[in-house]
Each structure stands twice: as C-alpha cells, then as structure tokens.
C-alpha cells in the first residue's frame, strides 16, 4: 500500500475541513489582548496611536449610552489631517482632536469600483471594532484598498519618488500622494470624515480622476 501525492491532494480539503471544524468559531475566540501584545505587534501593522484616547472615548460612549443620551455625529474637524516634507521625507498624519465625540462604528465601503475589480479582502465584523478594511483587485493584481478607523492617530513616513498635495474629498480636507517605483505607481488619499479617518490606496491601473471617483462614491 502506497500513499501518493495525488491521493493526499484529493484528501487534503476534507482533512482540512475536519481539522478546522474542530476549532471554535470566531465568536467563541474573542480575547482582549494585553497592551504588551499590542505593543509588540505594532511594528508589523500600520502606525496607529491614541489608544488611551480611544479608551477614554469608549468609556464616555458607555456612560452616554447608560444615560440614554443621543451621541451626535462627529464634526469634520475631529481630526487634523496634515503633511509636511523635509529632506525628501514626507510625513503625513491624521491626529484626533481632544474633543472627538465617540460614535457607534459604522462601516464605510466602496460604493463604486471600476470595471474589472472584484472584492478581495474584507474585515470580518467585530462587535467592538474601531477599524475596517476592504480591498478589491483585478485578475492581474492591481488593487484598491480602503481602510477606516476611529479614535486613533495615523502617522506615516514616505521616502523615495513621490508627489503630494492637499486635496478635497466631499468637502473634507485630505492629503493626496502619488508615488512611483520602477514601472509601478501608487495613489494614496488620507482624509477624515466625521469620526472616521479614511485611507484609500490604489496600485496601478487607475488614473487620478477614477481614483477620486472611488473616494467620492463611498457608501455610508
């Protein structure tokens, strides 16, 4: 009796299904990771700060909810979106103001994407989420990604071949960056809308007008 690669390839999906079905579902795996863990993971993830601010905001939201008081929508000036370039290094950020009003988190999705793009990844729903991301791609891996978060600072540094300018997205001030490397290029748009910071990126395949059309057609 001999087990061949072909036999294992055929049996593997069912074996994986059996293994995975023995694991609990997402709801049963909820865990509040320690600050030490979050700190160690930070270098691997997009830069975000303001955890303490968010904790205070969450506490305030809980108090407001207990009192049965309505929480009004955040104002566009909840964040300060800015960029500066020095010695070839671009720093751009969205910093929450002290008076950011906590909100129940609502996902913002792309209401329109160009032809040829299909949904690639999307964050799974979490009850206490303050972050959401979604991306679309073409068959040849050109892609668009939207990240959205609330109550946290975002700060990024960029070097190399880039151009940037201030931009307006549905009346909100934002930063538009165009980077190029070898034959590929990337568009980045960072702006704030009410209680949310939004970060839209596109890699290859789009012109500027189409890129802004995606930003202008987000679905709330």
């Amino acid at each position: 009796m001999r087990i061949t690669d072909e036999m294992l390839c055929q049996a593997a999906p069912e074996a994986a299904e059996r293994y995975l079905s023995a694991l609990p579902d997402r709801a049963a795996c909820a865990h509040a990771f320690s600050p030490a863990f979050e700190e160690r993971m930070r270098p691997l993830l997009p830069r975000r700060k303001g955890r303490k601010l968010w904790k205070r905001a969450l506490l305030l939201a809980a108090v407001v909810a207990l009192l049965g008081t309505a929480v009004h929508a955040g104002q566009p000036e909840d964040y300060r979106v800015q960029a500066s370039a020095r010695d070839g290094v671009l720093t751009y950020s969205a910093r929450p103001q002290e008076d950011v009003v906590p909100q129940r988190f609502h996902r913002i999705t792309m209401g329109w994407v160009p032809e040829g793009y299909s949904l690639w990844t999307e964050s799974e729903p979490e009850e206490d989420a303050v972050h959401f991301s979604t991306s679309y791609r073409t068959e040849d891996y050109q892609y668009i990604a939207l990240r959205q978060w609330m109550g946290q600072e975002y700060s990024e540094i960029l070097m190399g071949d880039y151009q940037w300018e201030e931009a307006s997205v549905q009346g909100s001030k934002g930063i538009f960056i165009h980077t190029a490397e070898n034959d590929s290029y990337c568009y980045i748009l960072l702006w704030a809308e009410g209680p949310y910071v939004l970060h839209l990126t596109a890699h290859g395949g789009l012109d500027r007008e189409t890129f802004f059309k995606i930003a202008d057609n987000l679905q709330w």
């Binding site: 694991l23 609990p24 997402r26 049963a28 795996c29 909820a30 865990h31 990771f33 993971m41 691997l44 993830l45 997009p46 990844t121 999307e122 964050s123 799974e124 979490e126 972050h131 991301s133 991306s135 891996y141 892609y143 990604a145 990337c186 990126t201 890699h203």
Partner: peptide, 23 residues
C-alpha cells in the same frame, strides 16, 4: 502594500482563533 494588506487582514480575522489554539 499588498503584503501589508494581506497581513493586516489575516491579523484582524484570525488572531482570536490563533490565541485560542495556543491557549
């Protein structure tokens, strides 16, 4: 950026499961 997107999606979706498995 593609790797970062994939990694972040994996992190968001499965870190709870991974903790459970390890725990």
């Amino acid at each position: 950026p593609e790797d970062r997107t994939r990694f972040e999606a994996l992190y968001t979706a499965y870190r709870g499961l991974m903790f459970h498995v390890a725990r």
